[in-house]
Amino acid sequence: MRTSAVATGLVLAAGLLFGCASAVAAEAVPAEQALAKKVERIVFSSDRSGTWRIWIMKADGSQMNQLTEGDPDESDVDPVFSPDGKSILLTSSRGGKAGVWRMQDDGTKLERICDGDQAEWSPDGKKIVLRRDEKILVRDLAGGREKTISPKDWPHCSGPAWSPDGKTIAFACRWEAGNAIFIVAADGGTPTKVYDKQGACEPHWSPDGKSIVYETESHICTIRADGTKNRLITYYGGVQHYGRYSPDGKNLVFCQGPTERGPWEIYVVPSGGGAPRKLTEGASDMYPDWK
């Protein structure tokens, strides 16, 4: 999770209390009709069924479907599409311990991969990068080999994101002085700082690999990978978090909440800034990923 523990809890709590409200475009869709391939979709985590579960919808907010179910005491969050869109990585507390899980995009074949959280795919889909014990690791999915790529003496690393060319990984690190975004070679090395102001964290790459979307304490920004062209994209009231690019890079999906504690609604905004469009409401929806 990307904000403070209390903040997270409050968001989750709000969801548990009000999780049964319907979404803007929510409509029951039979599983067999669910979401034809090649239609752009957004996968996200929502408390609208009472517990944090993985949901999916079309990129216009319609045809919302719940993908995971389970024990009310166990939650699924932080979903990410595989490069081919057929699989989804997620973080789940199933079994009592946070771990990285994988499933098909229809919610079937849910399987645990390893301990950790905040996982993302490599561009070829053969590896994942994840966080464990506040370190960033790369894991080979076939063989299970792992390599820590964040420096040993760096504290509080989080939010890894693999660049589209597969060569580098962006991540955030928290120091006493604040947060910063770094880029490191995918096989490790000395990280390069991208930006270190306003609590910057949660980096995600644009599809062309030129830009990174990240979040400050309350807004979504974009910046070139070389640290130039830093730009505030959302400057609205309340708090905006969890920004990710659309597959064509023209839009950003993000979450809007009245406070840093949520509850969150999913919006879309042009990646150069502009008028946002609301996709969901009525519950708390977080961690959108667009494919």
Binding site: T3, A5, K97, S158, E202, E217
Partner: peptide, 8 residues
């Protein structure tokens, strides 16, 4: 100060 934190 803000950072991602563990699901647990």
């Amino acid at each position: 100060m803000k950072t991602r934190q563990s699901l647990a």
